[in-house]
């Protein structure tokens, strides 16, 4: 994958003054249009009723495969597990060489080197979580050290978590400064900023966090860690998609979106792609700008691909366990 430029740390000139002080930032974030939860969820659900068939489905399945950040984030992860995941990332369906590669493999920093070795030359990116993932409860120095370790191990992309405690306490500038510091530490690596939307609780908060993350220099804004009760949903992803759409309209800067956690079926993934298509549009229908943080999703996509190719329903024995 050709390296694409990363976002600048801090806001574009047109929005420079909104991060000038805690008060200015608060006023800006609280001045964003509110989100009516019922209307938002109804819109997300309505888009979920799109019927994606035949050629459209084939396109969507391949696109979804190519957008996966194939993820393992377990305490029990081992080099062997990561290597097998990387093999799958390079060749998701050994029976069908037309299957696209996934976008990235996402691991903890201590396994980033393993992943980098296994993926060398493949074009599949190494993504590493960092900044005291998943809780983000550590001193900034620790978070930065975590980030640097991941980069040193060969990570192409950093998936950081925000300090939800600071955000919920209203210390927006503190959250902003932390993201900005990680942004600077990440250098040329693309930075994904995880909000843990399930902990932010309200859609208004999710919209504010989205803008906060983008102002600070996120390349992607990402819903969740996969470690809490509620992860990516069509509705919270829709808020993120609206935010990146509006941010580009306001600043010219394009930011990617990554829903993560809980997306397990091809049907779900296609619904998310419909959201992308009808909210942000064509420019985001590319794995440089949209990702799925997932693991089991890949096998379901592969089975659906096989069904489209052969006309029969596939089964779990015809895809690989990772």
């Amino acid at each position: 994958m050709p390296r694409i430029p990363t976002a600048a740390a801090g806001p574009p000139a047109s929005l420079a003054d909104v991060t000038a002080s805690d008060g200015a930032l608060r006023r800006f974030l609280h001045g964003l249009p509110g989100v009516d939860p019922v209307g938002l969820e109804a819109r997300a659900a309505a888009l979920g009723t799109r019927s994606i068939k035949t050629t459209a489905k084939a396109y969507a399945l391949d696109l979804a495969v190519s957008m996966i950040d194939l993820t393992t984030l377990e305490g029990a992860d081992t080099p062997g597990k990561v290597r097998s995941l990387c093999a799958k990332a390079r060749t998701p369906d050994p029976t069908d060489r037309t299957t696209p590669q996934v976008a990235a493999v996402c691991v903890y920093p201590d396994l980033a080197a393993t992943a980098a070795g296994a993926l060398a030359g493949s074009g599949v990116q190494v993504a590493s979580v960092a900044t005291a993932f998943p809780s983000g409860r550590a001193a900034l120095e620790v978070k930065l050290a975590d980030t640097r370790a991941a980069l040193a191990a060969g990570a192409d992309e950093i998936d950081m978590v925000i300090d939800r405690g600071a955000f919920l306490a209203g210390r927006y500038l503190e959250v902003y400064e932390q993201i900005r510091a990680v942004r600077e530490a990440a250098g040329t690596a693309r930075l994904k900023v995880i909000f843990e939307t399930g902990e932010l609780s309200t859609y208004d908060n999710i919209r504010r966090a989205s803008w906060l993350g983008m102002l600070a220099g996120a390349d992607f804004i990402k819903t969740s860690t996969g470690k809490v009760g509620v992860n990516a949903t069509p509705a919270n992803t829709l808020v993120l998609l609206e935010a990146v759409r509006d941010y580009r309209a306001a600043t010219g800067v394009q930011v990617g979106v990554k829903p993560a956690g809980g997306i397990r079926t091809a049907k779900d993934a296609v619904k998310f792609l419909v959201l992308v298509n009808e909210t942000a549009g064509d420019d985001w229908l590319d794995n440089r700008w949209f990702r799925f943080g997932a693991s089991s999703l890949l096998n379901d996509l592969l089975m659906q691909r096989q069904k489209l190719r052969t006309g029969r329903y596939s089964g779990p024995d015809y895809v690989t366990v990772d």
């Binding site: 939860p37 019922v38 969820e41 902990e199 609780s201 309200t202 009760g229 509620v230 509705a235």
Partner: peptide, 13 residues
Amino acid sequence: HPTGSLGVAGSAY
């Protein structure tokens, strides 16, 4: 008028 929810579906608080 929509009643909505206190927070996103299933969130802790």
